[in-house]
Write a protein that binds this DNA or RNA. Sequence first.
DNA 1: CACTGAACCTGCTGG
DNA 2: TCCAGCAGGTTCAGT
Lengths: 205, 205
Amino acid sequence: MAQHHLQAWDWESPMNFHYQYQHLCRGEQCRELMFEKPLTPSDVGKLNRLVIPKHHAEKYFPLDGDSGEKGLLLSFEDELGKVWQFRYSYWTSSQSYVLTKGWSRFVKEKRLDAGDVVLFERPRFDGERLYIGCRHRGAPAAAAAAMASVPWSTPYYASSSSVHQGASLHAGEQRAEVVADKSTETAAPAANSRRLRLFGVNLDY
Amino acid sequence: MAQHHLQAWDWESPMNFHYQYQHLCRGEQCRELMFEKPLTPSDVGKLNRLVIPKHHAEKYFPLDGDSGEKGLLLSFEDELGKVWQFRYSYWTSSQSYVLTKGWSRFVKEKRLDAGDVVLFERPRFDGERLYIGCRHRGAPAAAAAAMASVPWSTPYYASSSSVHQGASLHAGEQRAEVVADKSTETAAPAANSRRLRLFGVNLDY
DNA sequence: CACTGAACCTGCTGG
DNA sequence: TCCAGCAGGTTCAGT
């Protein structure tokens, strides 16, 4: 299957650049790297938060006064099409921008350790969709998106109260379907809002 | 020892109903135990809240949609007749019912620690009045009210509760004696207000 | 009235 | 799912 091939690929080799380009520009959409951050022990520890360097945060994820109060929910798609939702906010006490809710699940599922790198991408021509990836310490730089993830989600958050959450979940499914359609395999469209078959994997929300 | 017997006493057993009845029915008003909870470290710590187990909360302190938003104020009377008012509400984030405002004062004045037990009672025939009591860890179950009445208060409270103090200690002794009378052993009454010998244990304030 | 610490409120994680 | 525990921010009361 496609993703297994990608996992073993040597992304560092120049001769693979074209392939890499193809990978990053699935369909007609090119993605550009916004920034990456080597994870600190605190980023992967019990604080359950990722500190986003201020200059990156203010450039790519500006918080206006309105959203600054309680932060906002950001949705990112990983290389498998899985949508990760994080609460993004500013902590005045530490003068830091952070991802909080949802971050620890990402760390756990991707098995991130200090020294690993998390990276954020966006479409080159369409500012809506956001992507997240990671690269384990010592892994080739371009292999980030190929790191496998285990599809997992809790029903707890699927049923949670916020209007934003419901809307974003739906948006996430739509996004995943688009990705699936672009693949060489035919993915069955999600017939109901709780399950999506993607790359031959059933994802339950 | 009497208290060891009482500690093992089965309050649920029908054959003990008469004993329970005598204990709980002061004057003409019968009280029934709604529930009790052994206090966790968090319940008596800096979180300043008491988590009320959901099944008890929903049975005895139901919150309708109207009061659910900001919770409501619940008033309880302790064994001294002192009224304690707590804010009672539901935390959606932790899916828990809690007492918040006012709880820390109760913990402080009653000198509650983890492992102590707080108990909630109501009149058997009159649904209006509510009672709260506590029992210190290791104390006999029936001595709840007696232990709760330990006449200690901060200088801050001393001026307002001095009248109650004398009465409370007296009431506590009486009750303790009643319990002792039910046992095969006789407990010596405490002679001064700073020390109480109860069930063979010297309690210093 | 400003400052400070305690109390209170909200939200999240993890077992 | 419940709830213990933790964290950060806001409000309040005492000085």
